[in-house]
Design a protein around this nucleic acid. Structure first.
Lengths: 121, 121, 121, 121
DNA sequence: GTGGTCTAGACCACT
DNA sequence: GTGGTCTAGACCACC
């Protein structure tokens, strides 16, 4: 994995894991790699790997059990809830930012349609 | 103005000025405040204010003329170009992020429509 | 039983058993469950269950007899002694902590009365 | 300062600073030492000092400003609120724990009075 | 084997 | 000078 040096590595890794979670690539309740394994997998220092799980736990994405490992939040509804919240935040931010640079609602709608069709959807 | 301490202040101020530009609140060719005035206006350190104009000049948003002051890029077409580029980047990022968390194109389109109508548009 | 992941499980279980002892839920001299049974009862690893009895024995709360099992300290006076010691420790700690955050003795006394009456006593 | 090796140093330092705050030894809005100065003052590694302010910020005790330093929560009411919440938590826990080991409300009240008078109050 | 903590020292961005 | 991040490596408690 390539990192953008302008953004903290731990945030980029969290983002990557969260995407895998929200895409369904990681199941609720599933055991995540140990911090040492995560460090190898993402090519970071074990301390940084530990920080990644620390922050993810603070976000409610996983829970850690001493001596056992780190586990994805068990409740399947929780993942779906986070998915919806993330989508709502992204959409809200997007619409607000477009209006702030002078795009009318219809223009914003058009812009999205254009990109979606240009991607072959 | 309230600042998000996780993001460099100078970037937040630049963002704010760029919005005013793209919304038409600041006209092409217009003279911008002196760094001292900018520092007072935004409540930032004079060093930070200087950096703001430095970075904006590097972005092509303005030009500094020694002894005269700092001026917004004169060409009206340039502003419009930046506006379109910004919109394209925002839209592209938004669509990509939505698809990354498992939203199909039609769902993304629906999400945007929902937010736009819920805002009374 | 729900465990606080920041505190060793074996300490939380010991605390729970000690409370049952001091409340009279477990009688002096009574036989305690086998480590395997304890593990099931509290939903912990058998290794952890063994450690629980180890530590409790070191605290003088119980005694293990090979081939027979683990027994609560027989002397009824010992239980009462522990009860008094625990109360003294709790009260001492409480008063000290309250004074450390700036509560005068009379304020501390009032705080206790308030809570006791609010609980319907 | 002497540390209890069974408890993370950063928690012990936070506890110490919080007490100074709640006792009024540190004023709301006041600048706290830099992480490097804190490290020297408490004899810990700069990394540990940074973690101390990190956690304190998460608790709402202080706020950090990049390039400027770390400042105690400005709102004077906030400190008083935390003081009251802490007292309520301590008292609630104390009363509950005493009742859990079989102390009646009047006995608990007596225990507190005894300790307070024995301390010469 | 697992996470938690700590030290040591480095580099960077921001004010 | 300030905090933020990262690496390296160590030791410990817990399961």
């Amino acid at each position: 994995m390539q990192y953008d040096s302008r953004i903290p590595i731990y945030l980029q890794v969290i983002d990557h894991i969260r995407k895998r979670l929200l895409q369904g690539g990681i199941q609720p309740g599933e055991k995540l790699p140990s911090t040492r394994a995560l460090a190898l997998e993402y090519g970071v220092n074990p301390n940084t790997a530990a920080r990644i799980y620390d922050e993810m736990e603070a976000m409610g994405l996983c829970r850690t059990q001493r001596g056992l490992g780190t586990f994805v939040t068990g409740d399947p509804g929780a993942i779906e809830r986070i998915r919806r919240e993330t989508a709502a935040r992204l959409t809200g931010d997007y619409v607000r930012e477009m209006s702030e640079i002078g795009f009318a609602p219809r223009q914003t709608e058009e812009a999205v349609k254009e990109v979606l069709t240009s991607c072959g959807y």
